[in-house]
Design a protein around this nucleic acid. Structure first.
Lengths: 333, 333
DNA sequence: TTGTAAGCGTTATCAC
DNA sequence: GTGATAACGCTTACAA
């Protein structure tokens, strides 16, 4: 690999002059500039980014650690982060812990060891707490999206999951439904706990009869929701509405209801969460009523917050909370 | 940020000793090792990876440029690359050009400027040719998956798209079907051209009547395939089989057929390509017969090939071609 | 076992 | 306009 010294030698000038040309600075005679550019071209020379970053103390890069890169649910988040970092002049690179804490630790460290100007972590597994604490104890700028740590101040982008679940449940109650079930997501995730809490609060606030309520856990899985709800229906238990903590299980619920001769939304109203639509066959199913999560905007806010921290270290920690929006589909009357 | 000098001062030793401790090398007295470890802990010190890489001339990192990170089709590819780089002791980071050539160029450069030990690019847009040529002209190790450049030798992981399409078409012919249509993917992608070529060759080899054949382009889109096939059916043209250059359009074809009262597979047999299943509702549709692309293995091979090039620069360029596998579903009789 | 000094490829300061 | 020289943070002969 050619270095700046090779170019300097070839052009018979000092490295400083080459550096100036590379950085488009003035103070180089036209002849020298020409010679230098020629040498750069001849050697197909590219400045070494590591050396540059070491000297500048700036990588112009944002690192993102995802819980899992392979989940179509996070596409909009990724797009929001990409578009925004693009606009703000930062490179953005992604990696994922594959739902494995040890790997996640490694990548947090990886980014923090000077390779990026700051990092963003996404996820809300309860077990992420350790990883997040690691981030708090080091000096690089960072932003947590979705995840949080109690009793600490840091850059944080959140969705109001409790409030969203409350709103969804209230919507069902206002439709006159009484026997409302709740299918939770994986309870190892904070979002699931929060949504359950919002559901219960709304029920209590409305003095709804919790005796008729069944809460089942479905791990965000369509199939599991299908099985658990089917089992309840076989017991001759029947709700008149169901709030699912995510869209995938909501679809499982619908399938179980169909197979038991129940109509949606006439017999049972359904609300999901996330606005995470199936990628094909939209057309053959009722469009799900759901709480939309503004993922694109959350990604955008994450990058903006991070860049502000990078470029203006004196800004205090920023917390942004987004509100989920009720998307009216065809599964509520 | 604490540096190695800070630790050395704190522990009252030289930087070399600290370096030895950091790299788990012998030649440090127990007392000094202890003092050094204490200082590291106290300062929460992390060695700067850039400085280290600059000195070592090794980043222990693989960079991957995807055409688009936000496409669930590439999940298995990503997993294959992640698992394999994990096993081989490399960090792996991803970025995507968002189907934008200029951005893709930037990220190829980004990785090549010393930030990674080598890189992998995935994609087969015809317009990628320029980006790929850029890669050929620089000295860092790299692997192209799916993409290729005529008349050049380099590390390349390929799927035999021509052969796969040939096999798929032959399968339909052997079922006794004669009026076979082909729905292509986006023709700005090499894979689409190759699959069309395989289709045509198989038809010619079987002396099938091409007059009855309709070839329509569907850009990998379910909806577009639906529209174009619907239009043909309205013209009272009816096939007895259809080979789709991807699974998404295959589903669009099925929908159009259903709406026109045609049964699958009785009236029309369907084969897709990619084994790219819809994420929900599998159960309500006939399982598609398709040509499976071993994406996980391709990702694995990509990383293995790259690491071999990195660690053994004398190895010549390696080309690996995978064969698609016919997956029997319910859309062929 | 320990420390000095040179080197990795840049940038920036400051004489000339 | 130009070129030494030091600095960025780390590794590694080599000498002590």
């Amino acid at each position: 690999m050619a270095t700046i010294s090779d170019i300097a030698n070839k052009a018979n000038v000092s490295r400083s002059l080459v550096s100036r040309v590379l950085n488009n600075r003035s103070g180089v005679s036209p002849e020298n500039r020409k010679k230098i550019l020629a040498a750069i071209k001849e050697y197909n020379y590219k400045p070494n980014a590591l050396a540059r970053a070491l000297s500048n103390q700036k990588t112009q890069t944002i690192g993102v650690v995802m819980d899992d890169l392979c989940d179509k649910f996070v596409f909009d988040l990724i797009k929001g982060m990409q578009d925004t970092s693009e606009k703000l002049g930062y490179n953005i690179i992604f990696c994922s812990g594959r739902a494995n804490n040890e790997v996640k630790f490694r990548y947090v460290d990886y980014f923090m060891q000077g390779r990026t100007d700051g990092m963003i972590a996404f996820g809300s597994r309860l077990s992420d707490g350790d990883v997040f604490k690691e981030m708090i104890e080091q000096p690089n700028p960072f932003v947590l999206i979705e995840g949080y740590i109690p009793d600490h101040e840091f850059n944080n982008i959140q969705l109001d999951n409790v409030g969203g679940a409350y709103k969804a449940t209230k919507h069902l109650l206002e439709l006159g439904r009484k026997k409302i079930w709740h299918v939770t997501g994986d309870l190892h995730f904070n979002v699931s706990l929060d949504r359950r809490e919002g559901f219960l609060t709304a029920m209590r606030d409305a003095h709804a009869d919790i005796n008729e309520t069944n809460i089942v856990c479905a791990d965000f899985e369509e199939e599991l929701a299908y099985k658990r709800i089917s089992a309840l229906l076989r017991d001759n238990k029947v709700p008149d509405a169901c709030f699912a903590g995510a869209d995938k299980p909501a679809y499982g619920v619908i399938r179980a209801l169909y197979e038991n001769g129940l109509r949606v939304p006439e017999d049972v109203a359904i609300i999901g969460f996330d606005d995470d639509r199936p990628d094909t066959f939209d057309m053959l199913f009722p469009r799900l009523t759901t709480m939309r999560q503004p993922l694109y905007e959350m990604g955008k806010a994450g990058v903006e917050t991070l860049v502000r921290s990078i470029e203006n270290p004196d800004w205090g920690p920023t917390r942004v909370v987004f509100e989920p929006e009720l998307i009216i589909g065809q599964t509520c009357p």
